Amino acid sequence: MSPGAPPGVLVRERVVNAGRRLVALDLGTARTRSLAMGGNAMADLPSVIARGADAVRPIRHGMVIDPGGCLRLVRLALRDTRLYDSRPLERVLAGVPLAASRSDRGAVRAAVAEIAGCEVRLVDEPLAAAVGAGVDVLDTRPCLVLDVGAGIVEVVAFSQGAVVDAAALQLSATTGTGLASYALEGVVDMTAALVRRLAAGARPATRARGLVVTGGGARQEELLRRLRASVRLPVGVAPQPQHATVRGLMRLCLQPALAVAAKPARG
């Protein structure tokens, strides 16, 4: 979900081959990323499908709005993973926004299953992003993750793998330089409100762990400055934040115990 990212690129990424063909899939509003176990590259392409002379975006706010277009987008993403491994797929882990409804989740599952022809598991994207950023989501101390995507921004408090509290803001547009001014203010207010809602006894531990920002908009300096001033917590940016979700999905493929222990996505 990286606003302003370059058009289709392959990002070098090393993943240990455990003898199975598993794929992590992040269907974003602006970018779609896939990573196969045993592959040596991450597929990173615009979430755009050509339909005649028109360019169609089948994903909005991180959710499917054009099922036919989504099928074509998933086919392109999975095709790239076959360049490195032609074996049949065993499983796909696909990210979905925490705010996605049951029908939204069903649309993602149906599109991926039709193209992949294998088991499809859905994982809430903020959880995957936290895992991809190296956050220990199973720690008893609450941790905060702000996932800044091109179409939706979600802030989540985790404790022992479960969601303690969460909020989301859907974006109508994202500029190449980050969040628009109206959205920036909304994201900061939303995050500060969640921090205020935390139980008083949990605040010292939360303060010690701080807030981790992921997603394509994570490096916007004005956002980070205003977050630090408003939430009064340490605010850090995940390494290569635009890839945190797909990397987290792959880590969940590789660590099934973590995937079981963490609260799964609904639907």
Rank of each mutant, 00 (worst) to 15 (best):
P142Y: 01
A162F: 05
A199N: 12
S181L: 14
A157L: 12
G210A: 00
C143H: 07
R197E: 06
G216H: 01
G176N: 12
G178S: 14
M190Y: 04
D189Y: 12
V153G: 02
Y182K: 11
L144Q: 03
S159Q: 09
L194K: 07
G176T: 11
A180Y: 06
S172V: 13
A173I: 14
V188M: 05
G217I: 00
S172Q: 09
A218K: 03
R196A: 15
L146C: 03
P204D: 03
P204E: 07
V188G: 09
V135D: 01
A150S: 12
T206R: 04
A183C: 15
R196P: 08
G186R: 04
R197Y: 14
L194N: 00
L144M: 08
Q220P: 01
V135M: 11
L198D: 09
V137A: 02
L223S: 02
L211A: 06
L138D: 01
E222F: 02
T214L: 01
L144C: 05
L138A: 09
A183G: 15
L171W: 02
A193H: 10
G176L: 12
P204Q: 12
A173N: 07
A166L: 01
V163A: 05
D189N: 15
A218H: 02
Q170V: 12
A208Q: 10
Q220A: 05
P142E: 01
T177R: 15
G149W: 09
A193S: 15
G215F: 06
G210Q: 05
V153L: 07
T214H: 04
A202R: 14
G176D: 11
V164N: 09
G210Y: 00
R197Q: 14
D189C: 13
G149Y: 06
C143N: 03
Q220G: 04
G217D: 04
L144S: 02
G161Q: 04
A180M: 11
A202S: 11
G176I: 00
A205Q: 13
L171Q: 02
V188H: 05
A208G: 06
A202Y: 11
V213D: 00
A205D: 07
Q220S: 03
A183M: 09
V155I: 10
G178K: 09
V137H: 09
D147T: 06
T140Q: 10
D139V: 10
V145A: 08
I152Q: 00
D139R: 10
V188Q: 08
G161W: 12
V164W: 02
V164G: 05
L194H: 07
L211Q: 04
C143K: 04
G216M: 07
V212L: 05
A193W: 09
V137R: 00
G217Y: 02
A218G: 08
E154T: 11
R197I: 02
G151Y: 10
I152E: 07
V135I: 15
T214F: 06
A168L: 02
A167Q: 09
T206C: 13
Q160S: 08
G201L: 12
G161T: 01
L223T: 02
Y182H: 15
A208P: 09
D147C: 05
C143P: 00
E154A: 07
G217W: 02
L184Q: 03
A192G: 10
A157K: 03
A193G: 13
R196K: 13
V156Y: 07
V195N: 06
E221N: 06
Q160H: 10
L184D: 03
T177W: 15
E185N: 14
A193L: 15
E221Q: 12
L169E: 07
Y182L: 10
A157V: 14
A183R: 11
